[in-house]
Design a binder for these strands. Structure first.
Lengths: 132, 132
DNA sequence: ATGCTATATCGAAAATTTTCAATATATATC
DNA sequence: GATATATATTGAAAATTTTCGATATAGCAT
């Protein structure tokens, strides 16, 4: 499976990162503002911001020694797209049929060879076996 | 922060769960089909399916001793809504202003008392201090 | 009821993620 | 240059998540 999804969704799977995102919805924030609000150490903030930026959800901007963070609209749109893809998918009926068929054929083979059905042989297969 | 977000997004933050979701986009699948495809033990599948169902992303259906899983469209729509909320947020300019103001006031207080600026006093404060 | 299969739960080990003190790097000021 | 501040990195401990063997529960068939 494509780890693209993981890189993006992982950003949302930690309470501190979610709080950062929540703060950023109120507009651009500098690192020190975030540090003040969350009660974590500076290295910990750095760690989380790296993950958020790597996911594309957050954008960073340097000004002298400081760093400003803001929501990256493009990255969020991409996350939306990935989520949508997982939610509704390709409706690939053909692929689904092929998979089911291969399971049925395997089961039929077993029966022909006088073997007992394998464990976890699946409902569909068993039903077909009964029907056939 | 509301853990609602965490419960939903955590569902997407594991490779095995993402693979399950990917399979479910091709239509309803029974537990044994998932077990066959992923190379994990039965208790592990059970563990992941519980998380997916608890998040509302996946729906389960019993048929005799078997269990069928499918994408829960409502749950996904909800996830979309949460993601959108985090992406664009409330645009609460007022809140942002209040926070900035309180930081400035604190800095001003420090200066009045002849104190040096605290570490991590933040760019905004420093700028204002220079300007004022 | 007994035996069989599918799934769930428990508990401990394994793997991963998060945390922070110490330290490094980068930028600005003097 | 030296000094000070902001952020990054390292490395090891702490916390959390994932994994699976053993076992429990539930449904079906004989």
């Amino acid at each position: 499976m494509n780890n693209e999804y993981l890189r993006v969704f992982r950003a949302f799977s930690d309470e501190r990162r979610l709080r950062v995102l929540e703060m950023l919805t109120q507009g651009e924030q500098c690192a020190c503002a975030l540090l003040e609000e969350l009660s974590i150490s500076q290295p910990t903030l750095s760690y989380h911001m790296k993950i958020l930026c790597a996911s594309g959800i957050v954008r960073e901007r340097h000004v002298g020694p400081w760093k400003y963070y803001s929501i990256n609209t493009e990255g969020c749109a991409y996350a939306q797209k990935l989520l949508q893809k997982l939610s509704f998918g390709g409706e690939d009926v053909e692929m689904r049929f092929i998979r089911l068929l291969s399971r049925l054929l395997r089961a039929a083979e077993d029966i022909k060879n006088g073997l007992r059905p394998a464990k976890n042989a699946c409902c569909s297969c068993l039903c077909e076996r009964v029907a056939g």
